[in-house]
């Protein structure tokens, strides 16, 4: 039996995969095309269809994620508007840098090294911040210094943050240049830039990030759809799962501590940087094992992190309700929570 030209088993695989990605996307505001495109490539879809379908899927999921975060009051429209305009201009600048580097024959090497370095760098910075008191001080010091720059017009963002619109524009422009240069959506750069650079609370940074991804995802999907490079049945089934996942992920941001969000985000970025480095080395030296390691690392990290996020939320729900009956899930949860809390507390002290 086939639905829209796809077998039931494959449809179930795509719905399950969508659920996993949607949870991560709703929680972090990133991870859509980062996971879908490689998965479609592994399944044998042509690269243009993999990228086009990935972008269409990211657009659909981010529409749902943005609406969900809006319901929670976690979207700042002023911030998203300025960032979108600045990033669009910056992406054009980044593309020009790529064309210049292609002419010198150094584009692949420089882009790959920059991509791995940025993923790892942002991941380590976020991990340091999540695990140490001094990290918090450093990031709030930076945000305080940025907020102290009084270049008009000043704008007040959600969470009581007051910052210069010119500074927001400059940050968006810089991220846009990097996005155009690396050929990525920029979500993994935008969220830490808003948190550490501007001092926006993590939940609002995620919500605003998703709104910006919705706009860029729509444009990207439109571009690829012009040449018919979007596999609609694939996108449709992925969305069926991710719509539920995005709802779960966005809801969990209300339950899990800000430091925990940062910790999981850092784990995803570090796993991503190792996976990309492994993939590139595998391609350069023709070692198939490294490509397999890369694929396993991406999907393993996605599965582990999304499971950890959901377990942390379940722990919080159960922790908020003392006095209920003890069962095996509760015991496992309690053990996980004790380990988790002890790790964070022992490191931060």
């Amino acid at each position: 039996m086939a639905i829209f030209g796809m077998g039931l088993t494959m449809a179930a695989v795509f719905i399950g995969f969508g659920l996993l990605i949607g949870t991560l996307f709703g929680f972090f505001g990133m991870g859509g095309s980062f996971l879908v495109t490689p998965a479609l490539l592994v399944m044998g879809y042509p690269s243009t269809v993999a990228v086009g379908s990935g972008l269409a899927f990211v657009f659909g999921t981010s529409v749902i994620g943005a609406l969900r975060h809006r319901d929670h009051g976690q979207v700042d429209y002023k911030l998203a508007g300025i960032m979108t305009v600045a990033m669009t201009l910056g992406i054009e600048g980044g593309k020009s840098v790529v064309f210049f580097l292609e002419a010198t024959g150094m584009a692949d090497l420089i882009i790959n090294v920059a991509y791995v370095g940025l993923l790892a760098g942002v991941g380590l910075l976020t991990l340091r911040d999540a695990w140490s008191d001094s990290g918090d001080d450093t990031s709030s010091d930076l945000a305080d210094r940025v907020q102290a720059i009084r270049i008009p017009p000043m704008v007040t963002l959600r969470g009581g943050v007051r910052v210069s619109a010119a500074i927001i524009f400059a940050v968006g422009l810089a991220i846009g240049v990097l996005s155009g240069f690396l050929g990525v959506g920029g979500g993994f750069l935008l969220m830490p830039a808003m948190m550490y650079g501007l001092g926006v609370p993590a939940a609002i940074a995620v919500g605003t990030d998703i709104l910006q991804i919705t706009i860029s995802g729509a444009f990207g999907a439109f571009t690829y759809a012009q040449s018919g490079a979007v596999a609609l049945p694939v996108v449709g089934f992925l969305l069926l799962g991710s719509a539920l996942g995005a709802r779960i992920g966005a809801g969990v941001t209300k339950l899990v501590d800000e430091d925990e969000i940062k910790g999981y985000f850092a784990a995803m970025l570090l796993a991503g940087s190792i996976a990309v480095a492994s993939n590139k080395l595998g391609n350069v030296y023709g070692i198939e094992l490294l490509n397999t390691v890369s694929t396993v690392l991406i999907f393993g990290a996605a599965l582990l992190v999304s499971s950890a996020v959901v377990i942390a939320a379940v722990c919080r729900l159960r922790g908020d309700r003392p006095g209920h009956g003890v069962n095996s899930l509760h015991r496992r949860c309690a053990q996980y929570c004790v380990r988790h809390t002890t790790t964070f507390e022992s490191v931060s002290r």
Binding site: F59, V63, I64, A225, Q226, V235, L239, A243
Partner: peptide
Amino acid sequence: SGSVQAIATVGLVFAEAITLYVGYG
């Protein structure tokens, strides 16, 4: 074909997203 096809594709994805958002909501 072309831009009309692209608008229809993006529109379909958007319609599915909204339907799922309302349905799951």
